[in-house]
Design a protein around this nucleic acid. Structure first.
Lengths: 179, 179
DNA sequence: AGTCGATTGTAGCAATTGCTACACTTGTAG
DNA sequence: CTACAAGTGTAGCAATTGCTACAATCGACT
């Protein structure tokens, strides 16, 4: 019965786990608090209001995702664009990172609906991925900047098709890409 | 005060309009009913329960989207893949079709979260688009089937980037595509 | 010891949710 | 006309929502 003081930092990890399993856009305070071993009362106390909780969670989850990505991404560049693509798709399908995909589409949907918090989060996540891609394009690529953007677009399209059960289309697209 | 009998068919158009503006995943009966000039009581009566309403709406909206697409898509094939891509992206950005995009990401998010109804809807929408693409690939394309799938993946990636405010990336990807 | 601020529990409120019970009015078939 | 089913309005229920009021406890400091 460790009655340790609950700080926002203590609360975020279990809340993030809950959100990765149950979604974030429609999450409500009481179940979220329960997952963290506290009460809605305390979430409001620590984060001000529900929006504060969501903001903190988005931030924390972005960090988690970035760390997971950093750990999983290989440092050596792939020989060509297609191989780069394939590697990234494999990594994001990893059990460690796959749970973030569900969350990702929630973020996209909220962005499309005009939610600025979610949109900012999505915007910077895309920036993160784009940065990594640009820095890891195949050596001798004729247009690393454009190529990275092309790959990112393909990655996101593939992952969307995955999400709706049309991985077959994404797979065929990968085969047809550059050849 | 035309007290005409309300049938499901009468109710669907105004409800679809409401949903296009306010989203569908989290829509609640009372506002939805109000938009259609009726009551939650009647929605349950006509559609059984909330899920029935959503199902009917998804179906109806899919039809609307298909009709709008059919009307907007040009019948002559584009000279090359890049131009095909550009034309479709232009069309889906049309005021007629743009409102469907917001809805689309809700459908994707729900699919990713495991909702079977939404997933089925998304699945068939992708089938629809793929079918049209395959039938309208540039003449002389070396691999129409694969090319259509590649284009679809790029389209969806582009639209996602649009949704999160990174249309710049999508635009650059389009430039980098095939050259 | 006692004071003071940070932290936490207990209740509760007003609003919204999907849905139901019950009564009423229709329109139509006999 | 009458019976019967389809359709509709009014109320309401139990659950959940974000959030607040109030009071208690805790820890550190004087």
């Amino acid at each position: 019965m460790a009655k340790t003081r609950m700080t926002p930092e203590t609360l975020l990890p279990p809340m993030a786990a809950h959100v990765l399993e149950h979604g974030i856009a429609g999450v409500s305070l009481r179940p979220l608090a329960k997952a963290a071993g506290t009460s809605d009362r305390m979430l409001i106390y620590h984060f001000g209001n529900r929006q504060g909780v969501i903001d903190a969670l988005l931030d924390y989850l972005a960090g988690l995702y970035e760390a997971g990505l950093e750990a999983a991404l290989p440092s050596e560049p792939a020989p060509d664009r297609k191989e780069t693509l394939r590697r990234i798709l494999e990594i994001t399908a990893t059990p460690q990172l796959a749970p973030f995909m569900r969350l990702w589409w929630e973020v996209v949907a909220a962005s499309a609906a005009g939610d600025v918090t979610f949109r900012k989060s999505a915007y910077s996540t895309m920036g993160l991925l784009l940065g990594w891609l640009e820095a890891h394009m195949p050596q001798g690529d004729p247009d690393p900047a454009g190529g990275a953007r092309l790959l990112l677009t393909l990655i996101e399209g593939s992952q969307m098709l995955d999400a709706v059960g049309r991985a077959d289309i994404a797979e065929a697209a990968l085969v047809a890409f550059e050849g």
